Simulated assay, not measured.
Amino acid sequence: ELVLDASTSYDPDKTAAENLADPGLTYFWECSQFTLPSGPTQSCSAASASFSITQSSSSSSATVPLVSSLLPLPSGSSYTYDFRLTVTKTSDNQTDSTSITVTVASSPPFPKDVSILPPENRLKVPTISPVILLGSASPPSGGAASLLSYSWSTVVGDVSLSDAGLLSTTLTGTSIVIRADKLTPGISYTFRLTATYLGSESWGEVSFKTNQPPLGGSFSVYPMNGTSLSTSYTLSALGWTDDTEDLPLSYLFSHSSASSLGTPSANPVFSAYLPVGDSTNSTYALNLTLTVRDALSAATVVTLCGLGDSSAAASASAAAFCEVTVMPKTATDSAALLSFVEGIAGVQVLSAVSSYDYLGATNTMQVLLSVMNSG
């Protein structure tokens, strides 16, 4: 609907309050002429028998709505209308006039069914793998798909899709791929696909939240000093939390020899003999690492730890690294070494193998090997 509006007209001889109450004006509207794109200027009365604003008709209203059915418009063409307004003061019949030219054009048909599938059909997605956004659109009825063009943009989020290195695809296809680890964990994103057909645009959007890794917990070890084969170290990962839909969490402990202590487990407490620490210095230091991972594979890696008490509760103190001392058995401990090989090590290896914990069995044998090498 086109609305002709002269409601801001006023009588300069009256105050603002008087004009607001009653400006004392009448309005005469007329359509003086219209012009076809390639034709001559014609009288509005020739445009349509139902066209109500003509040279011979008027309205005393300050606004005149003109519905589209009153403005004849052949498909794919445009008309230019010249409207004229004469305002008269009722007190002394003084007049003033103005005119406006309006071009009314038909718009090209719009693309249809522009949509984007949620990545992996989830409302929360991991960032450690590529994020794939699959879009689609259809041409208008009877239109050719080859005339469709596409562009992508960010509506909500901390990235621009045009950022260098963000995408492994172009911005002008029906689908895009955002590279792994390019989106920020724990925030919401909305991306838009705009489809254009002969200048007319339609768009669709998709919104999702990126997965945030576990947080808020601690990593502790007890004791911080000991001897290989004799001291059982207890590693604890307590207090870690995540969104309910991201549970359960798994815990994996490893040491600086690039070896994992067992397999990922839902148990946040793990006890084990540790291999001899770094023998190149007198401290025999061994660095420990905790990896906490949620069900969507988002992980927090912790290399700092505090000293836990005998119940494996974390203390407030933290070391620069989670570094423990693991001293080797001395040569005079050959009897203990033999006992360990025949007893403890054998039991642990057999137990691990029988429960298919091959990594645990390997860890026990590595501890034994480290002790033998240190001697």
Results as ranks from 00 to 15, higher is better:
residue 1 E to Y: 10
residue 1 E to A: 14
residue 2 L to G: 03
residue 4 L to P: 07
residue 5 D to M: 08
residue 15 T to A: 09
residue 18 E to N: 08
residue 19 N to H: 07
residue 22 D to H: 10
residue 22 D to G: 09
residue 24 G to T: 07
residue 28 F to W: 12
residue 29 W to T: 00
residue 29 W to C: 01
residue 33 Q to D: 11
residue 33 Q to P: 01
residue 36 L to E: 12
residue 37 P to E: 11
residue 38 S to F: 11
residue 41 T to C: 03
residue 41 T to V: 13
residue 42 Q to S: 12
residue 43 S to E: 11
residue 47 A to L: 09
residue 49 A to I: 12
residue 50 S to L: 14
residue 51 F to R: 13
residue 54 T to R: 15
residue 60 S to I: 13
residue 60 S to Y: 10
residue 63 T to Y: 06
residue 68 S to R: 15
residue 73 L to Y: 06
residue 73 L to F: 01
residue 85 L to T: 02
residue 86 T to V: 14
residue 87 V to W: 08
residue 88 T to Q: 14
residue 94 Q to H: 13
residue 94 Q to R: 15
residue 94 Q to W: 10
residue 109 P to Q: 12
residue 111 P to L: 02
residue 118 P to R: 07
residue 123 L to M: 13
residue 125 V to P: 05
residue 125 V to W: 05
residue 129 S to M: 10
residue 133 L to P: 03
residue 133 L to E: 07
residue 133 L to I: 08
residue 135 G to L: 09
residue 137 A to M: 06
residue 139 P to E: 09
residue 141 S to W: 02
residue 146 S to R: 07
residue 147 L to H: 10
residue 147 L to K: 12
residue 149 S to T: 15
residue 150 Y to F: 14
residue 151 S to K: 08
residue 156 V to A: 10
residue 156 V to H: 03
residue 158 D to R: 06
residue 163 D to V: 03
residue 163 D to G: 03
residue 169 T to S: 12
residue 170 T to R: 07
residue 170 T to M: 03
residue 171 L to I: 08
residue 172 T to S: 11
residue 178 I to K: 01
residue 179 R to K: 15
residue 179 R to S: 14
residue 181 D to Y: 13
residue 182 K to F: 02
residue 187 I to S: 10
residue 188 S to I: 04
residue 191 F to M: 04
residue 198 L to H: 07
residue 199 G to M: 05
residue 199 G to W: 07
residue 206 V to L: 06
residue 209 K to D: 15
residue 212 Q to F: 11
residue 213 P to N: 09
residue 215 L to A: 15
residue 216 G to C: 06
residue 216 G to F: 04
residue 221 V to L: 04
residue 221 V to D: 01
residue 222 Y to C: 08
residue 223 P to V: 03
residue 224 M to H: 10
residue 224 M to Q: 14
residue 228 S to W: 00
residue 230 S to G: 07
residue 240 W to I: 06
residue 241 T to V: 14
residue 241 T to W: 06
residue 244 T to Q: 14
residue 252 L to R: 06
residue 253 F to I: 00
residue 254 S to F: 00
residue 254 S to H: 10
residue 255 H to M: 02
residue 256 S to I: 00
residue 256 S to K: 01
residue 257 S to P: 01
residue 265 S to Y: 04
residue 275 P to I: 01
residue 279 S to N: 13
residue 283 T to F: 02
residue 287 N to C: 02
residue 288 L to P: 01
residue 288 L to M: 14
residue 290 L to H: 04
residue 292 V to K: 09
residue 295 A to E: 08
residue 295 A to D: 09
residue 296 L to E: 11
residue 303 T to C: 07
residue 306 G to Q: 04
residue 307 L to Q: 13
residue 311 S to D: 12
residue 314 A to Y: 02
residue 316 A to Q: 13
residue 316 A to M: 11
residue 317 S to I: 09
residue 319 A to M: 12
residue 322 C to V: 01
residue 325 T to S: 12
residue 325 T to L: 00
residue 326 V to G: 00
residue 327 M to C: 01
residue 327 M to N: 05
residue 334 S to M: 10
residue 335 A to F: 09
residue 344 I to Q: 09
residue 345 A to I: 00
residue 349 V to C: 04
residue 349 V to R: 04
residue 350 L to Q: 15
residue 351 S to W: 06
residue 360 G to L: 01
residue 366 Q to W: 02
